[in-house]
Amino acid sequence: MNRARHFLAVASTSRARWLALLEQTRALARGEAHVPSLRGHNVVTLFLEPSTRTRASFELAARRLGADVVDLSPSSSSLVKGESLLDTARNLEAMGADAIVVRHRVSGTPTRLAPLLRASVVNAGDGTNEHPTQALLDCATILAHKERIEGLRIAIVGDVLHSRVARSDARAFAMLGAHVRLCGPPSLVPEALGALGAEVTHDLDCALEGADVVVALRLQHERQQSGLVTSLRDYRMGWGIDARRWRRTAPGAILMHPGPVHRGVEVDSDLADGPQSVILEQVRWGLFARMAVLADCLDGTPTEA
């Protein structure tokens, strides 16, 4: 019964599909690809966690493809009134939603929701699990600067434990043959995270040594209250990336960050704004990556309303 094509996690995406999506993302950006039409398709964005940038990026992507977009922001969502997520999703489906773009604060929710629906489910970030479109746009960003991802040394630095970007990135980079290092304090980068296909280190200098790509992660202020970091100053001393430490990276290394950047904590301002920074480029790639994903899920051909 359920034939919908979903986009749920890097972990459940084949390498072939990933490479096809990446190629389509790049073709769309070059203006070479024939833009598939999603005219007559309804895309619903269901963001149950605050987000402006990712939601806007998905909306723009859907509109570029000619789809109709309905946004369900938390304030208008009946979930607030106690309706279950499954009921809400089924209602949206009954109203003709072809794709539901979900962000949820509980890890795994889109993956568990998908088999219960006929509509395509696109994961726009689930808890601390995955943010697969971010990984797609990160791969595209890297390819704009490096010839290939295979063989690159990529360091992901910061609060890996709470980062869905880190999990999706690490899986995607490893799938494409990069050497991935995860780095941060032991409280935020437990050894067991090596299961992502990466090397775990708590020494920032080791992580940056010879790195071609550095992905810095946002450190939430709350981590201090829960005792996971002693203080922001302490954190910066151990794992903040500054110009001096950047010297260890390979020539031509690029600095990435999923944003918003916490300047002076995880990364210094002059680096975030310097020539090595590709942070704003990432945002630009986001639009094309999400267009590629929506077109792939909905097949680019309109269905009967």
Binding site: A11, G108, T128, A192, L193, A195
Partner: peptide, 12 residues
């Protein structure tokens, strides 16, 4: 359980 599979799945 706080183990590799659970952590990799982004779960606590």
């Amino acid at each position: 359980h706080e183990g590799p599979a659970v952590l990799a799945a982004g779960l606590a």
